[in-house]
């Protein structure tokens, strides 16, 4: 299924996704997940959000964030199942990376729709 020679590339995606998610996710989550709901800061208007998401560089960065973070997550989840729970069935890798591919396609579709 996932052969040995694909491992270096998967680790590369894992690292890229790890760095990108570490750089961008905490601030985004702090704002949308906590600061806006608790009323610390007023959220941007819908019009403002459309402008931000309609900007091609923002869309590309968000797509990169989604795709690489999904692969980061899939890779780490697969290895955690292997190391912590000692599960190493070949189907686990297929399910992990398959979910990442499907979710990436969905992310591209959604981001393309608002652009």
């Amino acid at each position: 299924m996932v052969r040995q020679h694909s491992e270096p590339y998967l680790w590369l995606l894992f690292s890229a996704g790890g760095v990108l998610s570490a750089m961008l996710m905490p601030s985004l989550l702090l704002l949308f997940g906590i600061a806006f709901p608790l009323g610390w800061v007023s959220p941007p208007t819908h019009e403002h959000m459309l402008t931000v998401l309609g900007n091609p560089p923002t869309g590309l960065v968000l797509l990169g964030l989604c795709v690489l973070s999904l692969f980061h997550s899939a890779h780490r989840f697969r290895h955690t199942l292997h190391d912590a729970a000692r599960l190493a069935h070949p189907m686990i890798a297929v399910l992990c990376y398959g979910t990442a591919v499907a979710a990436s396609a969905f992310a591209a579709y959604l981001l393309w729709q608002v652009s």
């Binding site: 998401l53 989604c66 999904l70 997550s73 899939a74 979710a103």
Partner: peptide, 18 residues
């Protein structure tokens, strides 16, 4: 290692926002 679950959750949350 479990932070990967929350990374995945954030992608879902972000896509719901988009």
């Amino acid at each position: 290692e479990l932070s990967c679950v929350f990374v995945a959750w954030f992608v879902v949350y972000l896509l719901l926002l988009v």
